[in-house]
Amino acid sequence: MQHGKYRFIVGFLALPLGLYALFVVWPFIQSIYYSFTDWTGLSPEFKMVGLDNYRRMLDDEIFWKSLQHSLIFAVVLPLVTISLALFFAFMINVGGRRRRGGPVISGVRGSSFYKIVYFFPQVLSIAIVALLFAFAYNPDSGAINSILRGIGLDSIQPLWLGDPDLALWAVMAVLVWSTVGFFVVLFSAGMASIPADLYEAALLDGANRSTTFFRITLPLLWDTVQSGWVYMGILALGAESFAVVQIMTTGPGGPDYSTTVMVLYVYQKAFRDGQAAYATTIGVALLVVTLAFAALVMRLGRRERLEF
């Protein structure tokens, strides 16, 4: 009987695992292999160079800068985005005042409208969002500085993307803006499945909004938050951060390397400088960082799971 069970499971898993092995695991192995070569990416010839690429990477100042920025992305972005999304989702679903004759828990007035508004950036491709914000950040005629001028703050006209101290934060703000809506919807769905009687009981005991949030909503939503955290961190380390940095920033990656991130560096080394092998080396470093990040979040986030 046991034997039959495994055959049954294997039958279902073979195809997806095969595809996964072919399109994900195999390229990984290949990339790791290439990181030990001097392959340029422009000709089929290459030879093994041992650990040279790794030695070079450890001495590469720009690599360390990009690593540092990627880590800031991976820590700050999930923190800000998820906190904001939790707050918005809570206000939309639970945070409203009780209205006579209405349901026990409800969102603030106009919550269904807010829900759509928050989700709106999600339908725009990240490339379009980045372009729009690049216009908004234009110090000469962009929306932000025009508004500042409009309300009489003529003296405050930052260079935004042109200022090494501001550029990284300006880029991160765009990512927060464009992803927060997705998490609002995700958390809203999670909150909707928390039984209303738990809230009722809390309200009867005189709990206020913040108590309700920290004692009921957050613990029961923990799994979703944790998955969201990993997902957001991976976005911040990977594709999304590449898109905004590549499209918006000076250089790209500047000014003065203040916004360069690992994925951008991989791209530049592979496709601008014809050093594909070194690019895969940085790719391997990125893989290690990503795995470490996921492992860390899982470890820190582990707690008792509630069943209801």
């Binding site: 994900v24 990416g41 990977g238």
Partner: peptide, 11 residues
């Protein structure tokens, strides 16, 4: 999601 674009395209 992240690894495919960053790595497989190289190889």
């Amino acid at each position: 999601l992240i690894s495919v674009p960053t790595m497989s395209f190289l190889s």
